[in-house]
Design a protein around this nucleic acid. Structure first.
Lengths: 193, 193
DNA sequence: TCAAAAATAAACCGATTGGTCTAATTTAGA
DNA sequence: TCTAAATTAGACCAATCGGTTTATTTTTGA
């Protein structure tokens, strides 16, 4: 409160740095340097590196959830096109840093899923809340007869987002959106009613 | 040749350890300990940690390619069922260690894609060679009228395997095969002719 | 206005990192 | 059989790791 350093600014730096470099590859010192704070201040805000990472995941998860809510509410397209535009936006977003970072949640889940109960749990929690929002749009699409009803909204939203996560592998090793665009076209043809 | 330590044994240990723990989270000392070799021997075989990881990727990529060739050649099922059984086998394989490790190639691509040109290149190379083998089966499935021909063999094999990679996220944070099984059922209904 | 609490600042800590060095041992080929 | 090369062995290195400590400054509320 009115103090020199701002917790949210540190979390934002942490988001950027960890998203790009991963959890284990990033040291506290790098965070300190990029955020411009001394170590004492960091450990005043956060109990440990793991606690910091957990709060970064929360910060990003919640921010992204608000963003998601907004674009779904304000969309003037039909449900299926709302979803397709949403994934196109995500691909565009990844193009901005030359396809080298991917998604913090996907990265964290894959990197620390096995090792850190705390981080895996937080990761899953944020992911699940995103999926609920996506599932709502899928349900509307099914009610409108646009999206296949051979599978439930939960199954389809899961299928969509995990499929999207799968494209990050080739995106990163090829530094290209080609595969993501193909995935988008194929998936939305498949889930068509 | 006939010396005390065997390079392939060290690579196998490296595969197990790095697949499970990731690249940055694993130190040389851990490899030495688990492989039972002193540091001097390690650096006699490998130039650096990065060189070691590269050879681990090659070792695993080539081994897996042989395995893939074998099960595709020996399969007595139709092409589409050969593929479905193949992915079921992969899920079963991940169940063996309680869904905590995933695929070395996917892990490496996601973790080091941005950071290490050497490792990303090797990862992509091995992946591409797997995909060629899968694409051959897809082509046969299309010729047999089992698999949709709305997309090319390359597009479909890419779609299959990147979709499979996408399921690793939830597998790891939930330690469950539920999502993978659902993905399998949905995907093979979608690519049906 | 002033004392208690909160936040800032950086020196410092032991443990571990990837990697080097030197010496001893084992192997291969002349 | 003997020498040169390859391999084994682990002590050693500077740098970095996550984290603690102590002292100072800033803020807060009585």
């Amino acid at each position: 409160m009115g103090y020199k350093h701002n917790k949210e600014e540190i979390l934002e730096v942490g988001y950027q740095v960890i998203r790009k470099n991963g959890y284990h590859h990033v040291g506290i010192n790098q965070i300190l340097k990029e955020a411009g704070i001394p170590k004492g201040s960091f450990y005043n805000f956060f109990e440990s590196k793991e606690d910091f990472a957990k709060q970064v995941i929360q910060y990003y998860g919640e921010g992204n959830r608000s963003w998601l809510k907004g674009i779904f509410q304000e969309s003037i397209e039909t449900p299926i096109n709302t979803l397709k535009s949403f994934y196109k936006l995500l691909i565009d977003y990844n193009e901005e840093d030359n396809f080298c970072s991917g998604c913090l949640i996907n990265n964290m889940g894959n990197e620390t899923g096995r090792l850190y109960d705390v981080l895996a749990k937080e990761t899953k929690e944020q992911f699940d809340q995103w999926l609920d929002l996506i599932a709502d749009v899928v349900r509307k699409g099914q009610e409108a007869g646009e999206i296949t009803d051979r599978f439930s909204p939960t199954e389809i939203s899961n299928y969509l987002h995990s499929g999207f996560y799968g494209t990050f592998f080739k995106m990163k090793v090829e530094r290209s959106r080609e595969d993501m665009d193909t995935w988008l076209a194929m998936t939305f043809e498949f889930i068509n009613a």
